[in-house]
C-alpha cells in the first residue's frame, strides 16, 4: 500500500474540504476577521487534516501489509484468515468477517470431499482385497488340476491380478492420505521379490537379467516400491526390441554420500525424444503406445505419483533403438542415520 495510492483515493474528500476551507475564508474575510486569525485557523485545520490522514494511512498500511505478507508466505493461502487478527476499523471488520465465513464454508466443502474420497478409497481397498480371494482360489485350482490350457489361463489370471493392483495403487496415489510406512529396506530383497513375482513373464520373453550391486539399504515403503518396479518391468516387457538377439534388463544401484540411485535399464525399442518429457503424464501413450502394445498411459503416471509421495525422484533417459533407463533416486534420510547412532 503506497501513500500515493491512498492519497489518490482521498482526492474527492480533499477537494470538498478545500472548497469548504475556501468558503470559510471568504466568510471570515466578509466579517472582517483579521488576517492573522485566518492564518492561524488555516494552519490548525491543515495540521489536523495532515495528522488525521497520516494516522489513518499508517493504521491501514500496517494491517494490510501484514495481511499481504502472510498471504505471500503461507503455503495454504486459504488459512490466512485464521492467523490474522480482527482489524479495528469498520471496513476491515466487515471484510474480515466475510473472509472468515468464506474460509469456513470452504473448509467444510473440502472436508466433505475428503470424506467422500476416503470412503471411495476404502471401498476400492476392500474390493481389491475381496477380489484377491477368487483370484487366489483360481490360481490354486489351475495348479491343482493341470490341463492343456493351464499355462494360458495362468497368464490371463496374472493379468487380472496386475490390473486389480493398478486400481489399488491408483487409488492410493490419488488420494491424499498417508498410508505408507517408510523404513530401511534392502534393495536386494525388494528387487528379488519383484523379479520372483514376474518370473513367468520374464522367462516367457527370454529376458537375460543382470542384477548386481544391490547390497544397499534405502528408506522406503516396501510394497509401494515393489509396485513401482513391477510397472517398470511390465513396461520393459511391452516394448522389447525384436531386432535384438537377446533382450536384456539390468538392475543395479549406485551409492553416493547422501543418495542411493537405483538404475533400471533395458535394451528395448526406446522412447523418442519428443515423447520423453511426457511419459509420466496421465493418459499419455506416445508413439510406442500407439504402434505396438496396448497402453493405457496410467502405469508410469501412477509410478511417478507414488515416487513423489515417497519422496523419491524418478527420471528417464532413452535412445530410440538402443535403450531405456529409469533411475530412482533415494535420499539417505538424515533423521534415520542420526536415530540409528
Amino acid at each position: 500500500m503506497k501513500f500515493s495510492e491512498f492519497f489518490k483515493e482521498k482526492i474527492p474528500v480533499y477537494a470538498v474540504e478545500c472548497s469548504v476551507w475556501l468558503l470559510m475564508l471568504m466568510f471570515l474575510s466578509a466579517f472582517h476577521v483579521s488576517i492573522q486569525l485566518m492564518i492561524i485557523f488555516s494552519i490548525l485545520t491543515g495540521i489536523s487534516e495532515i495528522g488525521l490522514t497520516l494516522w489513518e494511512f499508517f493504521r491501514k498500511k500496517i494491517y494490510y501489509c501484514e495481511l499481504l505478507h502472510h498471504t505471500e508466505e503461507l503455503k495454504q493461502k486459504y488459512l490466512v484468515s485464521e492467523i490474522m487478527e480482527e482489524p479495528e476499523f469498520l471496513e476491515g471488520k466487515i471484510f474480515y468477517s466475510v473472509l472468515k465465513q468464506t474460509s469456513r464454508a470452504m473448509t467444510e466443502e473440502i472436508s466433505a470431499y475428503r470424506r467422500e474420497n476416503a470412503e471411495f478409497r476404502e471401498f476400492i481397498e476392500l474390493w481389491v482385497h475381496e477380489v484377491k480371494l477368487p483370484i487366489s482360489s483360481l490360481q490354486l485350482m489351475l495348479h491343482n488340476h493341470p490341463n492343456e490350457i493351464t499355462a494360458q489361463a495362468q497368464e490371463q489370471l496374472r493379468k487380472v491380478n496386475d490390473y486389480t493392483d493398478t486400481v489399488l495403487y491408483y487409488a492410493r496415489s490419488e488420494i491424499a492420505e498417508k498410508d505408507y510406512l517408510i523404513k530401511p529396506i534392502s534393495l536386494k530383497k525388494i528387487v528379488g521379490s519383484v523379479l520372483r513375482k514376474n518370473r513367468e513373464d520374464l522367462i516367457l520373453h527370454e529376458i537375460s537379467l543382470h542384477v548386481h550391486d544391490l547390497e544397499k539399504e534405502v528408506n522406503t515403503d516396501g510394497k509401494w516400491i515393489e509396485y513401482i518396479l513391477t510397472q517398470l518391468i511390465s513396461n520393459s516387457l511391452k516394448y522389447t526390441d525384436k531386432e535384438k538377439e537377446i533382450p536384456e534388463i539390468s538392475i543395479y544401484a549406485e551409492e553416493t554420500s547422501d543418495t542411493v540411485k537405483l538404475v533400471f535399464r533395458d535394451n528395448g525399442i526406446g522412447i523418442s525424444e519428443n515423447d520423453l518429457p511426457y511419459i509420466f503424464e496421465k493418459s499419455f501413450t506416445g508413439t510406442n503406445g500407439h504402434t505396438s502394445a496396448k497402453s493405457t498411459g496410467m502405469g508410469l503416471y501412477i509410478t511417478e505419483r507414488l515416487c513423489r509421495k515417497l519422496g523419491h525422484q524418478i527420471s528417464c533417459r532413452s535412445e530410440v533403438g538402443k535403450f531405456t533407463e529409469f533411475q530412482i533416486l533415494f535420499q539417505k534420510n538424515d533423521f534415520f542415520s542420526v536415530a540409528k547412532k
Binding site: 481389491v128 482385497h129 475381496e130 487366489s136 498410508d179 510394497k223
Partner: peptide, 28 residues
C-alpha cells in the same frame, strides 16, 4: 490379501515366521 507394509510389520512382530500375500504362487 492385505498388502500394506504395516500389516506385514505387525504380523512379523507378533511372531509370524513368514508372510505371504494373496494371490500366492503355489510353488513359492
Amino acid at each position: 490379501s492385505r498388502n500394506t507394509e504395516l500389516d506385514e510389520l505387525l504380523s512379523m512382530s507378533y511372531g509370524a515366521d513368514d508372510y505371504i500375500t494373496k494371490p500366492y504362487h503355489p510353488t513359492i
